[in-house]
C-alpha cells in the first residue's frame, strides 16, 4: 500500500470513528498504529471532535488528508466494530480494497429501527421518573415526554443551531409536554415527570468521553468535550426553566 492509499484509508477510518462517538485518543492511537503496521513511522495525526488531520510521509513526500465530521450520532456498536477492524488491520495488513470493503460493511452494520428507538426513549424516561420517586402516572407521562424529546431531537439536529439551542428546543418541548399532562390532571407531580424525561437529554456520553480524554492527556479534546457537556446541561436547564416558568400557572 502506498502513502496515498494509506492516508485515504486511515482518514476515512478515523472520520467514521469520530462521527460515531469514539474518543479522540482512541482515534489518534488507532490511526498511528495502523500506519505503523504498514511501516510508516513518520506520521502525524491530529483529531478534535469534529476534525481529523493526518499526514503520512513517504520517501520524504508528505501526504495530508483533512476530514470534517458533519453529523455525529453515537453508535457504540460501530465504535466496537471499527476497533476490531483496527486490530485486524494491524495483524493482517490487508490491501486498500479490503479495508475499503470492510469499512463499507461497517457503514451498513445494523442499527435499531426508528420505533425501537422511540420505545427506548419511552422506557428510559419512564424508568427514571419512577427511580426519582414518581408514581406510575408520572412514569407514563415521562415516557410520553421522552418520545417528544426523540421526535424533537431528530428535527433539532437538522437545524445546525449548536448543542445549546438544540438541547434547549428539546427541553422546551419535553417540559411543555410534561406540564400539559400535569394541567389535564393526569400526572400532577410534574417535577418527577420532567426529571425522568430530562435524563434522556443529560450529556452522559460527552461527560464520560471528556473525562477519558483528560486522563489520556489530551486536554484540548477533553476541554472541548466537557464544554459541550456543560453547554448541553445549560441548554436543558434554560429550556426547562422557561417552559416551567411560563406554564406553571396551568398546572396547579
Amino acid at each position: 500500500m502506498n502513502g496515498q492509499e494509506l492516508a485515504g484509508a486511515v482518514s476515512r477510518f478515523g472520520a467514521m470513528m469520530l462521527s460515531c462517538g469514539g474518543e479522540i485518543n482512541r482515534v489518534e492511537d488507532s490511526a498511528a498504529r495502523i500506519c505503523a503496521a504498514y511501516g510508516y513511522n513518520d506520521v502525524g495525526v491530529f483529531a478534535i471532535p469534529r476534525t481529523l488531520i493526518i499526514t503520512v510521509t513517504e520517501n520524504g513526500v508528505p501526504v495530508t488528508r483533512l476530514e470534517n465530521i458533519k453529523d455525529k450520532t453515537v453508535n457504540l456498536d460501530r465504535v466496537a466494530r471499527l476497533n476490531a477492524l483496527s486490530r485486524f488491520i494491524c495483524r493482517v495488513r490487508p490491501d486498500a480494497d479490503c479495508i475499503a470493503r470492510r469499512l463499507d460493511n461497517i457503514e451498513k452494520s445494523p442499527v435499531y429501527g426508528r420505533y425501537s428507538v422511540i420505545a427506548a426513549y419511552f422506557l428510559s424516561a419512564a424508568a427514571y421518573a419512577m427511580f426519582f420517586g414518581g408514581g406510575i402516572r408520572e412514569a407514563f407521562a415521562a415516557g410520553m415526554a421522552g418520545i417528544a424529546v426523540r421526535l424533537m431531537s431528530r428535527f433539532s439536529s437538522k437545524t445546525d443551531a449548536g448543542v445549546f439551542f438544540e438541547n434547549l428546543l428539546c427541553a422546551v418541548v419535553m417540559s411543555a409536554c410534561a406540564m400539559l399532562l400535569a394541567a389535564c390532571g393526569f400526572a400532577p407531580r410534574y417535577d418527577k415527570t420532567i426529571i425522568g424525561a430530562l435524563m434522556t437529554l443529560v450529556p452522559g456520553v460527552t461527560l464520560t468521553n471528556g473525562a477519558r480524554d483528560f486522563i489520556a492527556g489530551d486536554f484540548f479534546a477533553g476541554t472541548y468535550t466537557l464544554i459541550e457537556a456543560l453547554l448541553t446541561a445549560l441548554g436543558i436547564a434554560a429550556g426547562a426553566a422557561v417552559t416551567v416558568g411560563l406554564l406553571r400557572g396551568l398546572a396547579v
Partner: peptide, 15 residues
Amino acid sequence: LTFAAAIGFGICFNI
C-alpha cells in the same frame, strides 16, 4: 429501574 432505563439508553446508542 435503572437496568430498564439503561436498556433504553443502550438501544439509543446502538449497543
